[in-house]
Design a protein around this nucleic acid. Structure first.
Lengths: 236, 236
DNA sequence: CGACAGCTGCTTGTATACAAGTACTTCGCG
DNA sequence: CGCGAAGTACTTGTATACAAGCAGCTGTCG
């Protein structure tokens, strides 16, 4: 429900920064600076600062007063929380599927699945399709708006997934699982859809420990991670 | 995970305003003004404004640029969304109960239930106990932090519940249901716990339509609710 | 050489000034 | 009297100035 927004630069900046964090373009642990961002974006500190506050509430950014702002390291605990949340919600939504599915959404999902099978698929495109697919499933059961909450809470999970897929895995396997879930749903076989969904979501989740072993610096440690201010490099 | 905050006035104001909205001390539809709030709180617009932005992201406040800020009317759709979310999460957490429950949490919950049975119980106290009880159940299954996400998303549901209990219902019935759920869990009877939990959550949810018929002005209508700027009363 | 004080340059938090837009009021005109 | 347009008083969005604090460097002194 976009509150009749004339575009404000805050919203633009918030979305841009959020995208950059989720796509790892801004690496976990990277130092942010309200002044730097403001200068590079050509605006004042105010909208940048307000965007960072929003990202901090989502857990994607950590702000330490008088010290600095940093992209959150991927927190395995938060990844597990998001995994639990999305599994609970997506499985429960399968129980609320109506007798007759909305044909428009079904058609949209079919088109989505077709595009997923394209061979030459950018990784970002695949993530967008994946996101749209799962949200579409929620809409089938009338809970499309709940996906917003889930999406907001799964930032750490998404970043972990990207770390995983950046390694070597092909999206093809996931696309096949999507297809299996979809066919079970349109076939009215809810129990099969449930098991397929659970398998799919847990497959996504299973790689994280391997990734963590490979790139530990991107993950939060148990100790209170005290950030280090980067050395200043003066260039002139 | 409080990021080692020296108390900032923003956090204080955010928590205060949030509490006032959730307890209906600030009624749904009420007009807020950054300037008024700043003056009455003895600070500048900045921390007030940043608090309102956070509340707007939670859906508790709506900000219309160049027009005004308003406490969100209770949106039945968002109430239903929150109901679905919490039911999915709380039922799923019952499946993850460990063999041996954490004795400390069990003891805490027992004390909580005892206090719920006190006859002279302020309504706000009951809500606090209710909140702590449900969060405690989530902690039993190791998903205590997920409750944070659920709590953030159920602002509209909470306000609807308060509207309901402000009418005439006694908390005693809910306390009894809490007890039933708890006993089923410590008894290891997960299926019974599930049905008790489901019954409980839906009982909470069932009164909303009655309340809406009684106080429609507190609820959002389907149409895009265009807020009306209140008349200015100058007094001097 | 080592340690400590102060300086420097950055950080975020808060206050304030200005810009742009809306809606109501009111005044002037037909 | 009816009605429109300028005026006014408020709103939020953005830019800027100042306050307070942390970290590291550096110079000085023991």
């Amino acid at each position: 429900m976009p509150q009749r927004n004339g575009r404000t630069s805050r919203r633009d900046i918030y979305l841009k920064l959020r995208q950059m964090v989720l796509t790892l373009e801004l690496a976990p642990g990277a130092a942010l600076s309200e002044n730097e961002l403001a200068a590079s974006l050509g605006v004042s500190r105010t909208p940048v600062r307000e965007s960072l506050i929003l990202l901090a509430q989502e857990g994607l950014v950590q702000v330490f007063p008088k010290i600095g702002s940093f992209v959150s390291r991927v927190d395995p605990a938060q990844v597990a929380d998001a995994q639990f949340l999305r599994e609970a919600v997506e499985l429960a939504s399968l129980n609320d599927l109506p007798e007759r599915l909305d044909p428009a959404v079904v058609e949209e999902l079919r088109g989505n699945l077709n595009r997923q099978q394209c061979a030459d698929l950018d990784l970002e495109e695949f993530f967008d399709l994946d996101e749209a697919f799962h949200q579409g499933l929620m809409r089938l059961s009338g809970h499309g708006n709940v996906w917003t909450t889930v999406a907001a809470a799964k930032g750490h999970l998404d970043r972990a997934r990207r770390l995983g897929l950046h390694e070597n895995v092909s999206p093809a396997a996931f696309a096949a699982q999507h297809h299996e879930i979809f066919e079970a749903i349109v076939g009215g076989n809810v129990p099969l859809a449930r098991t397929a969904m659970r398998t799919h979501l847990r497959a996504v989740f299973s790689d994280i420990e391997r990734i963590r072993a490979h790139s530990p610096e991107l993950f939060a440690t148990g100790a209170s991670t005290v950030p280090v201010r980067r050395n200043v490099v003066v260039w002139e």
